[in-house]
């Protein structure tokens, strides 16, 4: 199963097996990765599952939709080039080994 590495603000990391088709938010929740709040349960409605993807990895991801782009304007932590909502990133084999960093605040 492809893996995703969740990096906490303190630098600690969790490597998690993510079934294809699951979102990175769901995988984080189901593996009890802290720092992903996901108040709306994946509806792209709350901007509390914000993550930073390493710039080099951005090309592996599907583009940001207009809705996600708007919600990223509303995150609690600053928006950077690598900002994504983890509920909007669906796992695929091509994303194996992806590292996402969790911001220090979501709300």
């Amino acid at each position: 199963m492809p893996k995703v590495i969740y990096r906490q603000p303190d630098g600690s990391e969790n490597a998690v097996d993510v079934p294809e088709g699951w979102s990175l938010m769901e995988a984080a929740i189901q593996n009890d990765v802290s720092g992903i709040v996901a108040e709306c349960g994946g509806g792209c409605a709350c901007a509390t599952c914000h993550v930073y993807v390493d710039d080099a990895d951005l090309v592996r991801l599907p583009p940001v939709s207009a809705m996600e782009g708007d919600m990223l304007e509303c995150t609690a932590a600053e928006r950077r080039t690598g900002s994504r909502l983890s509920c909007q990133i669906k796992m695929t084999a091509a994303l194996d080994g992806l590292t996402v960093e969790i911001p220090d605040s979501q709300t």
């Binding site: 699951w22 769901e26 929740i29 189901q30 593996n31 009890d32 709306c40 349960g41 994946g42 509806g43």
Partner: peptide
């Protein structure tokens, strides 16, 4: 989670195991 019960779960886009809040 209840919200998907009238949305993605009903349409068959997600299954019950993915509705659980926590493992």
């Amino acid at each position: 989670q209840r919200p998907p019960l009238s949305k993605k779960f009903l349409s068959g886009d997600v299954e019950a195991d993915r509705l659980l809040f926590r493992p």
